[in-house]
């Protein structure tokens, strides 16, 4: 089932209270927040009400917050090849 990936790009500060209510109903509380909703008519209508504020893409699977965090976290770029303690243990055991 396809999903809408909705990201709030612009804040609703200063806009009519109804827009804020629509964002609350979508679960968008702050800028750059991302939510997933199934592709249905009522969700499409909600998006239409706030279409100037959000970025929408259609995706196959929703991602959890942890998965999204993991995707945007850069690689550590290193790993521990040899620990000093292991070297010492080898030396003393010999």
């Amino acid at each position: 089932m396809p999903y809408f990936r909705i990201t709030l790009l612009r804040s609703a500060i200063g806009l009519p209270a109804k827009r804020t209510g629509v964002l609350q109903a979508l679960g968008l509380r702050k800028r750059m927040a991302t939510v997933y909703h199934p592709v249905t008519q009522d969700v499409a209508g909600q998006i239409m009400k706030v279409k100037e504020l959000v970025d929408v893409a259609e995706v196959e699977y929703p991602l959890t917050r942890g998965e999204m965090k993991k995707m945007r976290t850069p690689d550590p770029g290193y790993y521990v090849e040899r620990r000093a303690g292991d070297v010492r243990a080898e030396f003393e055991g010999r």
Binding site: G77, Y78, Y79, V80, E81, A84, G85
Partner: peptide
């Protein structure tokens, strides 16, 4: 999680 003397591989 590293101690002095540890050898790191920089792989990126």
């Amino acid at each position: 999680g590293v101690q002095p003397g540890d050898i790191l591989r920089l792989n990126r």
